[in-house]
Amino acid sequence: MAGDDDLWVFGYGSLMWNPGFPEVEALRARIHGYRRALCVRSYVHRGTEASPGLVLGLDRGGSCTGMAFRVPRAERAATVHYLRERELVTHVYKERMLPIRLADGRVVMALVYVIDRDHIQYAGALTAAEAAVIVAGARGRSGENVDYLLNTLDHLRAMGIRDQWLEEVARDIDRLRAGG
């Protein structure tokens, strides 16, 4: 059982398979009231300012299955510092403590990074077709935006997590590439 001073962190994107901090427990978890979405304009890694790509954010609405990591009290401050350096570079995300439901039924408060809808990098609530057009045409310092999407889907599938909206975006990209 987690002590009162342990920290839970909820990951919905790369934090799920590359947390980068010490954890003593990792469980699948669900957050309600938020959904995984390609809603963050990427100006550097997966696009440019002239032709932004899209990367993941946790946006309002629906629910999202991800991973929850319990960080021991002794590592709490260092983990929060690390996550702020990683997630708050442009302040497109807001740091929140929100309830999540762990796979074993427990409900815990977790550190979560949600999209700031007032930030210039917020792309809004896009349809899968709209996101596909953007992702299909974007490239940044870290490569093709399509590769980011497909890598994310590969990791989600490997973890046994289905994201129907992201899968629809990938299908729409395939149709675009096929000329349809």
Rank of each mutant, 00 (worst) to 15 (best):
A125F: 02
R30G: 07
V40W: 05
T127C: 02
G143T: 05
A37R: 15
A78F: 00
Y34T: 14
V169Q: 03
G47M: 01
M1F: 12
G143Q: 04
Y82E: 06
V24L: 10
L27H: 15
E87C: 11
S142L: 04
S51H: 09
G13Q: 05
D104V: 13
L126P: 03
T79M: 02
H119Y: 14
M67P: 08
A78C: 02
L176H: 00
R157P: 05
D163N: 11
A178R: 12
D154N: 12
D59T: 12
E75L: 03
P72I: 02
H45K: 05
A110C: 04
V114Y: 13
V108I: 09
R96N: 08
G143D: 05
L176E: 00
G143M: 04
E144P: 02
R162I: 10
M159W: 07
W165Y: 13
W165N: 09
I134S: 00
R86T: 10
D116R: 06
R28D: 11
Y122H: 11
A74L: 08
Q121R: 13
L149G: 06
I134M: 02
D154C: 09
A129N: 00
S14F: 10
G33S: 03
L56G: 06
D5M: 12
D116A: 06
E144H: 03
Y148Q: 01
L102Q: 13
V112N: 13
Y148L: 01
L27S: 15
W165T: 11
V24K: 14
A136M: 00
R60T: 15
E85K: 12
R175G: 05
R117P: 15
G13E: 08
A131P: 02
L88T: 07
G143A: 03
T152F: 07
L153F: 04
T152W: 07
L38D: 04
A138V: 01
D6R: 09
T65K: 08
L58F: 14
R70F: 07
P22T: 02
N18C: 10
L102H: 11
R76Q: 05
L150N: 11
Y93N: 14
T48H: 13
C64T: 10
G66D: 10
Y12E: 12
H155V: 06
R101Y: 13
T48L: 13
Y82R: 06
V9K: 08
F69W: 03
L166Q: 04
R36D: 07
G13K: 03
E25C: 14
L58T: 14
C39Y: 12
G62I: 11
D154Y: 06
A29I: 13
G53F: 02
Y148A: 01
A123D: 11
R60M: 12
H81E: 12
A158I: 05
R36T: 06
L98H: 12
